[in-house]
Simulated assay, not measured.
Amino acid sequence: MRIRDLFNEKKLVFSFEVFPPKNTSPIKSIYNALNELSELNPDFISVTYGAGGTSVNNKTTEISSLIKNVYKIEALAHLTSIGAKKENINFIKERLALEGVENILALRGDKKEECNSGDFLYASNLMNHLREDFNIIGACYPEGHIENKSIDLEIDNMKRKEENGCSSFISQLFFSNETYYEFLEKARNSGVKAPIQAGIMPVINKKQIQRIGNLCGAYIPLKFKKIMNRYEHNPEALREAGIAYAVEQIIDLSSSSVDGIHLYTMNNPYVARKIKENIKTVLKAVNE
């Protein structure tokens, strides 16, 4: 099934994201997480582009096949353009097609020294190459990309991605719903038409905040800072407070008729289960 069709069937699409184990870990190390996550019945599960870059041995394809063919859940395979050669991309395309995976999240990827050495300079170039064979999804950045925080530039990039075959978007994580609503309004008023899923990451330890700041520079509301500071020395309390904050975000977003929620699970089934249990009645009511 192509994920774009889910947005015609449901008022709110709810999905998870997982990442492949490190190259030093066996592929089976993700089985336990997928066993539990699959029981929560997400609409789809996305798999990030793991260690190995554009290597044809990348674990993303294998895990995507597992999700699709063993767990019977739609899979979304991430694929990055930076440094990618057409022959490697075509090999991965063939493998995904053989496994029945129909959906790709096409990304530029993090900048590297060799970023201009590949055949696809931007995510939109990769999308155009993949669009005839796959349903293409793109990333968007409600607070602007960390390399350029201009919202106008971000929206121009979204429109360019739509022109190159992008059927829906998944947003970078954020902690301020008000900031997200402002972004959505501006995107729609500027002509972006594709469905946009809100990316939510439950923060369960303070180290995550530091990594998030380096990763995307997300705005941290005062309310959230107070939670982190109050419970930073009590890991269990901080975990539960982080889950509660994410639940509050999701309930508010669901009540505001967003297109979907994409939960960055960090391969943690406990967190995903707690959130799903707290919002299952809300999801049911929204999708009735």
Rank of each mutant, 00 (worst) to 15 (best):
E36K: 14
A244V: 04
V247Q: 03
I136Q: 01
N177G: 02
Y122N: 06
E288C: 08
S81E: 00
R230M: 11
T281M: 09
E113N: 14
Y31E: 14
L107Y: 04
P142D: 07
A33Q: 08
K161T: 07
A241S: 11
A218W: 03
Y31M: 11
Y71H: 09
K280M: 08
K59V: 09
P221Q: 11
T61C: 10
K159D: 07
D43E: 06
P202L: 04
L98H: 12
G199R: 00
D43L: 01
F224E: 00
H145V: 09
I3S: 03
K223A: 14
H145R: 13
N164G: 10
I204G: 02
G50L: 00
E113R: 13
D152M: 12
A106C: 10
F14D: 00
S256R: 15
N128S: 13
E162S: 06
K276G: 01
F14S: 00
H262I: 02
N116L: 12
S255L: 13
P269Y: 01
Y180V: 07
C115G: 07
Y245D: 04
E185G: 06
Q249I: 04
P21A: 09
N135Y: 05
D110N: 12
I155M: 02
I275C: 00
I63Y: 04
P142G: 05
A84P: 01
R2Y: 10
H262M: 09
T54G: 15
R95F: 09
P195I: 03
S150M: 13
A198S: 15
G52F: 08
S65I: 11
K284M: 09
A218V: 12
F174T: 07
L40K: 02
